[in-house]
């Protein structure tokens, strides 16, 4: 597995508060890397730097071997970094297809003159995509407002998949979901990785993390304090690192 994303000595302060204190982390192509840590450990700040929402004070982010420095989330997105936020960020009044293609609609010319949205193509592609992720989303639903949390999550993930994102960041994707739907998200995350995407999976539920992730990175007080393959670790060990009671961290 090659290094898809490399983060070196990333530092960020908000006024007097040091939120990131030299983060080092590597993401490989085709893996699910879970990032865990207590509230305030710096998880959200870290992923917002990767997505281009925040700008680091110091340190480098390298994507596919070249340094990147995004001025906005839009630039990050164009470079192939897709974030699926906790609040899902779908336009409720638009259909599944319209959401997947929002901002990148295929165009056909009406009478060879007026550029119009090719809704037929959107519908076909959406149906293919839904089959591909083996989800039960109704492709023709007039809007996504009526979909369940899991279905909406699937739409957001399908969007990332379709647009061939290199890195997909899932920010607590199961936080608002019913237990039944969590398995589906775990399945979709693995599917993304199997398609060659590097997945960063931020979460709290350690059982779920150990199930979904290939590797786990633990953050504590603005640093990545431990990285391990998930089959080599246990919940208890992760909790130790998360709470700062590990032997390496006792100082």
């Amino acid at each position: 597995m090659s290094d898809l994303l490399e983060i070196k000595n990333l530092r960020k302060s908000f006024g007097p508060v040091d939120v990131l204190r030299g983060v080092n982390l590597t993401l490989h192509k085709g893996e699910v890397l879970a990032v865990v840590g207590d509230n305030g450990a710096g998880k959200s700040t870290l992923i917002k730097h990767i997505a281009g929402v925040y700008h680091q004070d110091l340190g480098d982010i390298t994507l596919d071997g070249s340094k990147v420095d995004f001025a906005s989330p839009k630039e990050g997105r164009e470079a192939g970094i897709e974030t699926v936020y906790q609040d899902l960020a779908l336009a409720d009044e638009l259909s599944v297809g319209a959401n997947i293609f929002l901002g990148r609609e295929p165009i056909k010319k009406l009478f060879g003159l007026f550029p119009t949205i090719d809704n037929q193509k959107i519908l076909e592609e959406t149906e293919n995509l839904i089959n591909r992720i083996e989800s039960h989303i109704p492709p023709k639903a007039p809007n996504v407002a009526g979909l369940s949390g899991g279905q909406r999550q699937a739409v957001a993930i399908a969007r990332a998949l379709y647009w061939k994102a290199k890195v997909v960041i899932l920010d607590e994707p199961t936080a608002a979901l019913a237990v039944m739907e969590r398995d589906n998200v775990v399945k979709l995350s693995k599917l993304l990785a199997s398609e060659g995407v590097g997945v960063i999976y931020v979460g709290h539920n350690l059982v779920e993390i150990l199930d979904v992730a290939d590797r786990v990175a633990v953050m504590f007080q603005g640093q990545v304090v431990h990285v391990t393959r998930s089959e080599d670790t246990t919940q208890e060990e992760l909790i130790k690192y998360m709470t700062g009671f590990s032997e390496t961290k006792v100082a």
């Binding site: 839009k74 997105r77 960020a89 779908l90 009044e93 319209a98 929002l102 901002g103």
Partner: peptide, 12 residues
């Protein structure tokens, strides 16, 4: 899209 979810519209 903007009226439905301005933040998501901005993000795309």
């Amino acid at each position: 899209a903007m009226g439905s979810n301005q933040e998501s519209a901005r993000r795309v």
